[in-house]
Design a protein around this nucleic acid. Structure first.
Length: 977
RNA sequence: GCCCGGAUGGUGGAAUUGGUAGACACGCAGGACUUAAAAUCCUGUGACUUCACGGUCGUGCGGGUUCAAGUCCCGCUCCGGGCACCA
């Protein structure tokens, strides 16, 4: 353990609480985990114990953690939860005979790293390097069995060369919907040259049609514009989430409730020319792929929701007196006879064309009103009905009726066609709008047969609807779409909520987009031999005031000698993390993103562990990039992560002090004086290391704690702290009626974070209890997927357990106890039961119950005073994945060569588990009344007979006739009277 | 509003998938050792009731299926997470 610069340690006594200092001494006397850890870390590194080869006869298994952002705060105890779980599994699989790839790296690009660097006024590369070193130290001290020779960093040019390369592939491919695969853009050009775009079924935003002759006549610029609309990485003017405070564009998933996820700054929609990835091309495959992978239902639900597939129809409505027609998308074409008005998004391109002279003013005013509203305002006032009449009318395709056209912000420009046919009888929002604007309502669905159905359920009988009247809804939908298609006014259609992903960031610390523009502004990608395109040095990392990327400051870099200019936007953080798992298979390859042989051997990740906060962004992009590379034949799998586990969050204790200001004086009021009504108080987070008994109901700041708090927050040097026992000010406590200085703080459970001053550093826990204890305690806390609060109370239980385990090998004076005596049948039974349970529990990732199984075993063996080598040696191997240090030490002491982590996992033998008797619970009328032992081989009949003779049964039966006698062999007996 | 989870002692949690509810651990209480404390060890610990043997109740609430329900079904309540004017 190299902990030279570990800042957290000096205050560790405060954090853990002083009384435990004494325990620490006692611990070290029994076994010196610090020494043991140091010794084996060095040994493992020297011997390359955890290095893995791409050449092996053994079956492969790939265990991966979501790699961290190396933030400046280092790890807190919440971070390693997933790492420990995956490490246990990786170690287990290795012992089970698999060739296990278990690497680690750093997601070093992106906003957090850059913000941190800017705040410290240093180069992001330097701060990143610094942070990585700290992370590495912390990760190693936990005893995680990573193959560090495979470490990757997304900010390393050797790595991002290939991120850029994949981007150029995306740029040079389009999505062929017929073949359901990505194809080279050159093929598309050939097809255009032969037939125009008439036969091309592709994912595109291009709506026009052209022939081969047209194509030949198009200018270079026109051709380029069209091709751009087919590329999988493309440049387009789009409404983007612009965040003024961060000075950058954000992806949809980085915006929550109109605020930036990072920093909570307001975000507005702005039209800008940006790079996008055509993720929508893969929408269907991203959706159907979910059925092939082992992820939690909730995670799949989030992704399905994000993709948001719906089926319906696209219908064109003729416009009265105009050439143009109005396309709409609906999931309820069966309600078309109930249409009484149409609504367009205010930004819809037809608004200007449609609006009549008389309505010009009103419409313009409304459009202006909407444009001036922030996303936040729109979302906050969802129920408010606003809109304007355009003066124009559409023609109903079946009745010929004239339908008024309105604009309203409840119709979104980006979803469907940005226009709807409004059916007020069967849609709440349409209904609200119709009522507000006094538009008639026609009932078209009779739901009287479905009393429980909601407005949106696709059930009922169609009424008032000409040729579909009388049909049930599903039948009516099919029929009306047929008619629409026959009439040539529309077609069956599928729609997605998912949008193409914005891929431009006006940020310094990211991969430069490897694109150059010629004098006509036409984009071309850099060839592989010009990659990596390295980040230039710039004078200032912040974005420019007009929203251009900081890279634009590097004039020499931007302007090429031949007059071309470089793209100055950088890629988002999700770029490097979209494919990093592939790089680990062949991390030093300079000729390819990963060698064919390596990636074909390791393939996709068998077990992926990480936080659910990446449910959408990272996991969606990763799946998209994987499918794309699969289409191009670079890899032979279509999903990146076969099984995924989201570890829960470890929550911390939040300590709060209440402040009231009066006449410019700060009064802190002890929580027991504040009561439940905290209105009128400001809340301040108190660093938990100042608080006595933090996390407990009565947690308080002692006189010493108050002094520390004031010293830490000098602006409160003169503040008055009021508590029941007296008053504290300027370092002096004035008691009242002989009271004590106890300033009570309010405790809550919540996220652990630097800003709440409640992080617990694993270094401190490891220093006091050892890495093995830390690992096992995190596992013992509860099911891996559950969130749970951290408290150090329970850690003593694990610490005791490890010392008892050690005590099976050594007595209190350090004498070796292990003998080669023949083990007793009971001891063998304990061992084999434990092995059986461990196998069962590890396979289902139930690590908490597995630890409890070890506890039971150690308790039992201790009672038996079992020191038999043939019991303890397998037990050491069994526990090795959980407690790698102590088991490695004991493995050597048991006289074994090599590492326990390269041995084999024990297996159990049923023969030791056979019981001669089985305890049967005897129930009478379903209530347990007794437990009786019967021979294990007793037949059903024997048991039946014996049960009836039992005194207890006689007593309960009490002469009444026995209706039924149920005997489940090996389980239980139930007598029904 | 919609979707996905969840609710078990004072606490974290367990229950072989319909078969002894509360494993394991924390906490608490009592005891041993100690001048004392810490550490360690032992005993007890769901609630109610009984001198005791024992009995009654008990897995968020209300019903149901079953010889048997924490587990399955129906209807709710509350908590956590996600989405949200998505036509």
């Amino acid at each position: 353990m190299q902990k030279g610069n570990c800042l957290g340690r000096t205050i560790f006594c405060l954090k853990i609480g002083a009384p435990k200092e004494l325990r620490k001494k006692n611990l070290i006397m029994e076994f010196n985990f610090t020494e043991i850890e140091k010794k084996w870390l060095a040994n493992w590194e020297k011997n390359g114990t955890y290095q893995v080869s791409n050449d092996s006869d053994r079956p492969k298994y790939y265990v991966l953690d979501m790699f961290p952002y190396p933030s400046g705060s280092g790890l807190h105890v919440g971070h390693p939860l997933g790492y420990i779980a995956s490490d246990i599994f990786a170690r287990y699989k290795r012992l089970k005979g698999y060739n296990v790839l278990h690497p680690m790296g750093y997601d070093a690009f992106g906003l957090p790293a850059e913000e941190y660097a800017i705040s410290r006024g240093i180069h992001p590369a330097d701060s990143t390097q610094e942070n990585i070193e700290r992370y590495r130290q912390q990760l190693e001290s936990i005893g995680l069995s990573f193959d560090w020779s495979r470490e990757v960093r997304t900010s390393d040019p050797k790595y991002y060369k290939w991120t850029q390369w994949i981007f150029t592939l995306l740029f040079n491919h389009y999505y062929d919907k017929d073949a359901e695969t990505a194809r080279p853009i050159f093929d598309l050009i050939t097809r255009f040259e032969q037939n125009g775009n008439l036969l091309v079924q592709a994912s595109t935003t291009y709506e026009g049609e052209f022939t081969a002759t047209d194509w030949a006549r198009f200018s270079r610029k026109e051709k380029d514009d069209i091709l751009m609309q087919y590329r999988l990485a493309f440049r387009s003017v789009g409404y983007v989430n612009w965040c003024e405070a961060l000075g950058t564009v954000l992806a949809n998933d980085q915006v929550k409730n109109g605020l930036s996820e990072r920093g909570q700054h307001p975000v507005e929609l702005r039209p800008m020319t940006q790079w996008f990835l055509r993720t929508t091309a893969y929408a269907d495959r991203l959706l159907s792929g979910l059925d092939t992978i082992d992820w939690s239902e909730s995670l799949k639900a989030i992704q399905r929701n994000w993709i948001g597939r719906s089926e319906g129809a696209l219908v064109r409505f003729e416009l009265k007196g105009l050439e143009e027609s109005l396309p709409i998308y609906t999931t309820r074409p069966d309600t078309i006879f109930g249409v009484t008005f149409m609504v367009l998004a205010p930004e819809h391109e037809l608004v200007e064309v449609l609006t009549t002279a008389e309505q010009q003013e009103e419409v313009a005013a409304y459009v202006k009103y909407v444009a001036g509203r922030s996303e936040r305002e729109r979302q906050a006032e969802v129920k408010e009905v606003t809109g304007a009449f355009t003066g124009a009318y559409a023609i109903h395709p079946f009745t010929g009726a004239e339908i008024p056209i309105y604009i309203s912000e409840y119709v979104l420009k980006d979803y469907g066609t940005g226009a709807i046919m409004a059916v007020p009888s069967d849609d709440e929002r349409d209904q609200a709008f119709a009522k507000a604007f006094d538009i008639p309502i026609i009932d078209v669905i009779d739901k009287s047969d479905y009393p429980d159905a909601g407005l949106h359920d696709k059930v009922g009988r169609v009424i008032n609807s000409d040729f579909i009247t009388g049909m049930e809804v599903p039948e009516a939908i099919a029929e009306i779409i047929n008619r629409i298609e026959e009439k040539g006014i529309g077609k069956r259609g599928v729609n997605y909520k998912m949008r193409d992903a914005g891929f431009s960031r006006q940020r310094y610390w990211g991969e430069p987009i490897p694109i150059v523009y010629d004098e006509d502004g036409l984009a071309s990608s850099l060839p592989l031999d010009e990659l990596p395109l390295e980040l230039p040095e710039v004078s200032e990392f912040r974005p420019t005031a007009d929203g251009r990327s900081p890279l634009s400051r590097a004039e020499d870099w931007v302007h090429l000698p031949d007059g071309r200019v470089r793209e100055t936007d950088t890629m988002p953080g999700t770029a490097g993390s979209a494919w990093y798992f592939m790089r680990y298979t062949d991390p030093h390859n300079e000729e390819a993103f990963a060698g064919k042989k390596a990636i074909d051997y390791w393939q996709n990740v068998d077990l992926y562990v990480g936080g659910s906060e990446h449910a959408v962004a990272h996991l969606m992009y990763s799946r998209f990039w994987t499918k794309f590379l699969f289409d191009l034949g670079y890899i032979n799998f279509e999903e990146p992560f076969k099984k995924l586990i989201n570890q829960g969050m470890i929550q911390g204790v939040i300590e709060i002090a209440y402040l009231k200001q009066k006449d410019g004086q700060n009064y802190f009021i002890s929580a027991d004086l504040v009561g439940d009504d905290v209105r009128g108080y400001s809340e301040f987070f108190v660093p938990i290391e100042f608080v006595t008994d933090y996390g407990k109901e009565h947690s308080y700041l002692s006189e010493e704690g108050l002094r520390k708090y004031v010293e830490w927050k000098p602006e409160f040097a003169n503040a008055i702290f009021e508590m029941p026992g007296g008053v504290f000010q300027k370092g002096v406590f004035t008691p009242k009626d002989g009271g004590e200085c106890r300033f009570v703080t309010h405790s809550e459970t919540g996220k652990m974070s630097k800003s709440r001053y409640n992080t617990i550093n694993p270094d401190d826990i490891i220093a006091e209890y050892g890495a093995d204890c830390f690992r096992m305690y995190e596992m013992f806390l509860g099911p891996i997927e559950q969130s749970k609060p951290w408290n150090t109370n329970g850690i003593d239980g694990i610490s005791k357990f490890l010392r008892r385990f050690w005590a099976l090998f050594y007595d209190a004076d350090g004498r070796w106890l292990v003998t080669d005596e023949k083990p007793s049948a009971e001891a063998l039974k304990v061992l084999h039961q434990t092995i059986k349970k461990a196998l069962y529990d590890i396979e289902r990732f139930s690590f908490n119950t597995c630890v409890s199984g070890f506890m039971v075993a150690v308790n039992d063996l201790r009672k038996m005073k079992c020191h038999s080598q043939s019991i303890l040696e397998p037990l050491v191997r069994l526990m090795a994945p959980f407690a790698p240090f102590i088991t490695e030490e004991l493995w050597g002491k048991l006289g074994n060569e090599g590492s326990v982590h390269q041995s084999t996992y024990p297996d159990f033998d049923e023969k030791y588990l056979v019981e001669s008797t089985v305890d049967y619970p005897i129930s009478i009328n379903g209530k347990k009344r007794a437990v009786v032992a019967f021979p294990a081989d007793a037949s059903k009949e024997d048991i039946e007979k014996a049960v009836l003779d039992l005194e207890i049964v006689q007593k309960w039966v009490d002469g009444k006739p026995i209706k039924r006698l149920i005997v489940v062999p090996g389980r239980m007996v139930n007598v029904v009277v």
